[in-house]
Amino acid sequence: MIRFEAVTKSYKGTVVALREASAEIQRGEFVFLVGPSGSGKSTFIRLINREEVPDAGKILVAGKDISSLSSWKVPYLRRQIGYVFQDYKLLPKKTVIENVAFALEVIGRPRPIIKRQVPAILELVGLSKKADRLPEELSGGEQQRVSIARAFVNRPLILLADEPTGNLDPATSVGIMRLLDRINRSGTTVVMATHDRGIVDSMRRRVIELDRGILVRDESRGVYE
């Protein structure tokens, strides 16, 4: 599903964020990216949905080499990839249901499909009863659920999550992880960058560790270390 072949990425030519990283992630896997701040986790994620372009090496997503993807095709790549942010990035003036529908509207999905898919996904994340609330009326955990609903509503092949529990307390984080696990079990490949030792140790999934841009560990059923 995702393959990195000796991928190097540096910023402004000097700071090396990723150095010759190679890894292969299979369809349906759940992968934790761990490592201290500045180790290259975010870069790894941003390379997958082509927010960044590698300096060297090759990245294949769903069998396609995306390092040479022409820019007008990037949106179509991203429609296959859901993205969850640490700070949710919900639109403050839109309600929960509008925030989720927005993701489908802007890629031109027909209204009947939106009307069917959005309530279904809100049901999945457990927010059906709060569909008409504004983000500011929700707790952090609920906001993150909305963000996940928005990322998943188009049924992407891959879900990327950059520190999705970074702003949440441990109890709330468990709920979010359950949700991500459920999404993963439906066949979606999940790649999640995290600092959260407790979560990684309790889930026992594949762990890729980065340290100053170098991929230092890749274990199935790993721990945080």
């Binding site: 949905n49 927010e51 820019s71 007008w72 949106p75 179509y76 790549l77 991203r78 429609r79 296959q80 990839i81 993205y83 990035k89 639109l91 927005f102 993701a103 802007v106 890629i107 928005r150 990322a151 188009n154």
Partner: peptide, 10 residues
């Protein structure tokens, strides 16, 4: 930003 990340065309 959200539009770009969910794959809205330019």
């Amino acid at each position: 930003e959200v539009m770009k990340l969910v794959g809205a065309t330019n």
